[in-house]
Amino acid sequence: GTLHLNGVTVKVPSLEKAIKAAKKFAKKYNLEVQVHGNTVHVH
Rank of each mutant, 00 (worst) to 15 (best):
K11P: 09
A26M: 09
E32Y: 08
E16V: 12
G1W: 14
A18H: 01
I19S: 00
Q34D: 08
K27R: 09
A21S: 05
K20V: 08
H36L: 13
V40F: 01
G37Q: 05
H41T: 14
L5H: 05
V8F: 12
L15P: 01
A26Y: 03
L15N: 00
Q34A: 11
T9W: 13
K23P: 01
K24C: 15
G7Y: 06
N38L: 10
H41C: 15
A21T: 06
F25L: 14
V40W: 01
L15A: 01
E16A: 14
P13M: 08
A18R: 02
L5I: 15
K28I: 10
E16I: 12
K11Q: 11
A21Q: 07
T2H: 13
G7R: 03
H41Y: 14
T2W: 15
S14W: 10
L15V: 08
T2D: 06
K20P: 00
E32R: 03
T2A: 09
H36P: 01
V12I: 08
K28Q: 10
L5Q: 02
F25V: 06
K11H: 14
I19F: 04
K28F: 08
A22V: 15
T39N: 11
F25G: 02
Y29F: 10
K20R: 11
K24S: 08
K11E: 08
G1E: 10
A22H: 00
I19Q: 00
K28P: 00
A22R: 00
V10E: 03
Q34E: 14
L5W: 15
K28Y: 09
V42A: 05
V35N: 01
V35W: 07
T9C: 11
N6Q: 08
V33Y: 05
Y29C: 10
H36S: 11
K20Y: 04
T39L: 09
V42E: 02
Q34L: 12
H41P: 01
K23D: 05
L5Y: 15
A22W: 07
Q34M: 13
H4L: 11
A26P: 00
G37I: 07
E32N: 09
G1M: 08
V12E: 01
S14Y: 08
L15H: 01
Q34K: 11
E32L: 09
K17E: 12
K24A: 11
L15M: 08
G37K: 02
V8E: 05
A26F: 06
V10T: 05
T39K: 07
V42L: 13
N6V: 09
G1R: 03
K23R: 12
A21I: 15
K11A: 08
N38E: 07
G37S: 04
A21L: 15
T2K: 12
Y29P: 01
V10P: 01
A18M: 10
A26H: 01
V42P: 01
T2G: 05
V35S: 01
L31K: 03
G1C: 15
V12A: 05
T2V: 14
N30C: 11
N38T: 12
Q34C: 15
T9A: 12
N6G: 12
N6T: 05
T39H: 15
A18G: 02
T39S: 12
K23V: 11
V12R: 03
N6H: 14
V42M: 11
N38F: 08
L3V: 11
V8N: 06
H4R: 04
G7T: 07
I19Y: 04
K28A: 06
H36Y: 08
V40Q: 00
V42Y: 06
H4I: 15
G7Q: 05
K23H: 09
A22Y: 03
K20W: 05
N6E: 06
K17M: 13
V8A: 08
E16Q: 10
A18N: 00
G37E: 06
A22Q: 00
A26Q: 03
L15W: 06
N38C: 08
K17Y: 11
A22P: 00
L15S: 01
K23N: 08
A18P: 00
L15C: 03
V35A: 03
T9S: 11
K11S: 11
N30L: 06
G1K: 05
K27H: 05
A22S: 01
P13H: 11
A21Y: 12
V42Q: 01
V35G: 00
K20M: 10
G7P: 02
S14T: 09
K27V: 04
K27D: 13
N30S: 06
N30I: 04
T39E: 14
K28D: 09
V10S: 04
K24G: 05
L3Q: 02
A21W: 15
V35H: 02
K20L: 09
K17I: 13
V35F: 05
H36F: 09
